[in-house]
Write a protein that binds this DNA or RNA. Structure first.
Lengths: 246, 246
DNA sequence: AAAATAATGTGTTTATTTTACACATTAATT
DNA sequence: AATTAATGTGTAAAATAAACACATTATTTT
């Protein structure tokens, strides 16, 4: 990385040590982290948004973000934002990618690293939601401040890809959940309907769901069994992922 | 993104406009782009490396990178590096992710955005390779300067994932190629052997390979037909990518 | 208390996809 | 002319995914 050339013309080889001292200020850029915080409630995938405080974006909603401190890890910055806004620690968090368009921020050049996270909305609901914060249906968002709609779209696509290959969905549910709830998560993330019997068959086959011998409570119909996800049972039964499938 | 809180303690809400002017210098970070330039030659996947010029990494190889100019798009920076180093324009380029460990650069905080690119090594071979640059076997790299081994590993994994879902491999080959060459690319990227008949069947079925009515030249055996990849024929026959497969 | 409701729990059959596998052909080389 | 080394081609078996229906259970309604 960045060890070679200074400026666009690449006149001479110069070490970054030199560059650091020489162009210390000029070449630095404001860096932020933006978090796409997904939750699941009322059978819908939700995203936590805040009302933008910029005049230009008056009234528009935006993702939760902040500048990265020069002494701060990127992941730490993302965790800090989550902790601040949801009160939650130990949250599933994954970098999506970095957005660096020159025009993306009205205040000047701000490059932002996008993360998405999956939280159990029930846990979070207990915390204070000041009225600048709101859970929105992911599929009901037309526009956002800044380039946040693009960031949301990228993150959602990444979530859709990942959730089909890794057991992430459990992070959106309480520890105990029914098969119906699990299927609802998949159906809402992937925006599709699945066959109930085939769905159960598939999950019981990979055997990391543990029947905890309890039933749903307070449902207006026959209650289903409750399960929890045993990560250690999951432990990388690596699918032999070699195949071509455009 | 970055619209809300300043500093770790989130004392007060403050717009980034304020932040920009107030912490203009203090809160900015050096940003670089590093390119993992993949090529294919002698039936092996290669990566283009340069000898590090930092004392600390004397003799070690590193990726090709440079600082991002505050007025420069991230993609432009990556393209600039490619152009400088390989002489090539119009190259397949894709962002991998951003690496921001505090300790990753001896000169201080430098956050780097990783890209990988796929080039036709034959084209590039015509250009001057000064003796600081060298094509290395991807599977024969033990360590690199900085955190470049991690970046390479991430990029290689991303390439492996992508190449199974999108027709990227063609970027590593000349315009005209034989089925054997195409299969060699896949086998070396995925580090596996495939059945020749099934491989052909699969590619002829998706029908974007065009038989150009020419044969291989100068091969020491029966020459194979040459094909080229017709992107417009590929055009998103979206696989119905909904399924769960851990 | 009985009937109606709404969801759970469970296997089999069919279709599709993937894998395994062998021999005649062609051009170059010996 | 014989040998070599790869190309070109099809079918059968296995594995995976998709389609599909009915009895059961707790709750709610009558």
């Amino acid at each position: 990385m960045a060890s070679i050339v200074k400026g666009k013309e690449a006149k001479s080889i110069k070490s970054l040590l030199d560059i650091q001292s020489e162009v210390k200020v000029i070449n630095r850029i404001a860096l932020s982290v933006d978090c796409v915080i997904f939750g699941f409630d009322e059978n819908k995938l939700k995203v936590l948004l805040i009302r933008s405080d910029l005049k230009k974006f008056q009234g528009k909603w935006s993702l939760l973000g902040d500048l990265v401190d020069p002494k701060e890890e990127l992941d730490s910055a993302a965790n800090r934002i989550l902790k601040q806004r949801t009160g939650l620690d130990d949250v599933y968090l994954e970098q999506v990618r970095t957005f660096g368009c020159l025009e993306r921020h009205p205040a000047g050049r701000v490059v932002t690293v996008a993360y998405y996270s999956l939280i159990n909305i029930q846990h979070h609901k207990l915390k204070i939601l000041d009225n600048e914060l709101h859970w929105h249906d992911v599929n009901d968002i037309a526009e956002l401040a800044f380039d946040h709609k693009r960031i949301l779209d990228s993150s959602y696509e990444q979530l859709q890809r990942r959730v089909q290959e890794h057991p992430l969905a459990f992070s959106l549910l309480p520890k105990k959940f029914s098969m119906r709830e699990l299927q609802n998560v998949y159906e809402s993330i992937l925006d599709t309907k699945m066959d109930r019997r085939n769905f159960r068959k598939k999950f019981f086959a990979m055997d990391f769901l543990v029947d905890i011998g309890q039933m749903e409570q307070d449902v207006p119909h026959r209650p289903g069994k409750l399960y929890h996800f045993n990560y250690s049972k999951y432990e990388k039964k690596k699918k032999k992922w070699v195949g071509i499938d455009f």
